[in-house]
């Protein structure tokens, strides 16, 4: 699948810690974006049902669950792949997110590859009228915001950093 973005950020944590924070705590650090919402409703809370048969879901305030995608690769703490479908996607329209955690010693490089946007036509509502490349660039910027949010979350909750 082409039409993809790749972003990467070094975080001050081990791969174990980063993988755990990314998956187990996604409901805390995730920041919804009006541009990349999963359903037309008020955004809910994201969570992974972990494991190789698991999935990523969004649970709205009323308890309704929207399945964003199935987990297709679950290899803690190095690699994670899951589907990303928005409610407005039609048949055959599906994207996929791969997250890699490269151990660099004191740091971990977290790389997100979001691919498959060629299955979602340029005129699709999910693209908000943006030209393809501008849309992808906005998506890349959004993922950098999200990775920074994971990093900030880990900084806030590090067991080695006492509360001020």
């Amino acid at each position: 699948m082409s039409s993809r973005i790749v972003v990467a950020l070094r975080v001050a944590a081990t791969a174990d810690r980063a993988f755990s924070a990314f998956t187990a705590d996604i409901g805390v650090w995730w920041r919804p974006s009006p541009l990349f919402r999963f359903t037309p409703r008020e955004p809910g809370v994201l969570s992974f049902e972990p494991g190789p048969e698991g999935r990523l879901i969004e649970t709205r305030a009323g308890g309704k669950v929207f399945e964003i995608g199935r987990i297709t690769v679950w290899e803690p703490p190095l690699r994670l792949v899951f589907g990303w479908r928005q409610a407005a996607f039609g048949p055959g329209q599906a994207t996929e997110v791969e997250v890699r955690f490269d151990d660099l010693g004191a740091e971990t490089r977290v790389t997100v590859e979001h691919r498959g946007w060629d299955t979602v036509p340029a005129a699709h509502v999910a693209r908000h009228g943006f030209p393809d490349l501008m849309f992808l660039r906005r998506l890349g910027d959004y993922w950098l915001v999200l990775l920074s949010a994971v990093n900030a979350f880990m900084g806030r909750t590090s067991p080695e950093t006492p509360e001020p």
Partner: peptide, 16 residues
Amino acid sequence: FETTMLVEAPDGSVAH
């Protein structure tokens, strides 16, 4: 250098 963002067009070319 470390690549921190790569945007690829449908034809696989580097857009950004």
